[in-house]
Design a protein around this nucleic acid. Structure first.
Lengths: 187, 187
DNA sequence: TAAAATGTATACCGATTAGTATAATCGATC
DNA sequence: GATCGATTATACTAATCGGTATACATTTTA
């Protein structure tokens, strides 16, 4: 049963994050994963498809982890909102954190009709919709606006973290989020 | 007097933004600029040096434009802070806007010792320091913190704009910035 | 008018890219 | 022990990459 497929996926994910997507050749991926090109192309029919799969898995992992954390550690919707950036911080500062995929992918594939770019935009929107749902359940008037603002803080912090690992950006993003959330709740 | 050098710079800037830096070959640049590789390499001894120069010019233009706008249209330091995102919006929504270079460059060159990455991080920090100075002059206690938060909003909005042109992210970033600034001023 | 600088045109180099063809090797099942 | 699927190993293709060499044309300067 192919642990190889998973190995290739995780290896590619790491390399994409540390070296860049376009700068990482297929040969480098298979060499690092300890396999050959024939095997890679048996599981992924093209590099683009591999990129898409890496993005998909990364996003699903993040969303599932975040949703699970919020559901088990917060009862009321407003509480979820207030704890959102706590878990974002926990995710981002985790030692095996390897970046928010869709942030970088959209930069490396700027053409709007590119499949990778389209998936990135879709995932970004999906995250925003998730926050919007939380805000809506917390009876916030402009749920859409708050969701957009929080996603901006998230993107900014992720971008800062990718620019310099271990920056204190997340900490201040959390404080800014608290101000925006509290303001929206008491309106 | 070489208008060719400037033509190459602006052409490269446009292509880098619309196609990506790594995805834009030197041949494409010279063909689009209407010149030859020999001329390009007379002005820029390598592609990396061309990238650095494009980044440098873009950042200088932005900083100079922003500083000029603030100085001529706002008197008091607090007023400058409050109008900051108005001009950021004006810059970003301008039709000939071609992206905040250091946002994308840091994604395409993730290695921290890479010259392009280093310049990007430097420019990002420089922008943050600029805001910090404004906040300091406005007698804001945690000038550093506010500057970081505003730069997060700026990065997030720029990232959103690069993901989808014409998004309303800037509008909401402006609103969030107002909340954060007002809160910091009346403390 | 002669010299010098600037730009064009074109062909080339070695390295790297994504992807494929072919044959050999491995382990498990029957 | 033979067979079968999965994996490896290696060599290859055609295209593209950044960068260079050479020869020629044009314009500027003296």
């Amino acid at each position: 049963m192919s642990g190889l497929r998973q190995k290739i996926l995780s290896t590619a994910s790491n390399l994409f994050q540390t070296q860049g997507i376009n700068s990482t050749g297929v040969d480098t991926i298979v060499a690092t994963a300890g396999t050959t090109k024939m095997t890679l192309y048996k599981y992924f029919s093209s590099k683009e498809l591999l990129i898409l799969e890496v993005l998909r898995e990364g996003h699903e992992d993040f969303q599932a982890w975040l949703n699970d954390k919020l559901n088990t550690n917060a009862k009321h919707p407003a509480e979820k909102l207030q704890k959102l950036f706590d878990y974002i911080e926990e995710w981002v500062t985790s030692p095996d954190f390897n970046g928010i995929g869709f942030i970088k992918a959209s930069a490396e594939f700027p053409k709007e009709d590119n499949p990778v770019h389209k998936l990135s935009a879709e995932q970004s929107l999906q995250f925003r919709e998730y926050i919007k749902q939380l805000a809506h359940e917390a009876n916030i008037q402009d749920a859409d606006g708050l969701a957009l603002q929080l996603s901006l803080l998230f993107k900014g912090a992720a971008q800062a973290e990718q620019m310099q690992r271990g920056s204190d950006a997340i900490k201040y993003a959390k404080m800014a989020a608290k101000i925006l959330i509290d303001g929206a709740l008491t309106r």
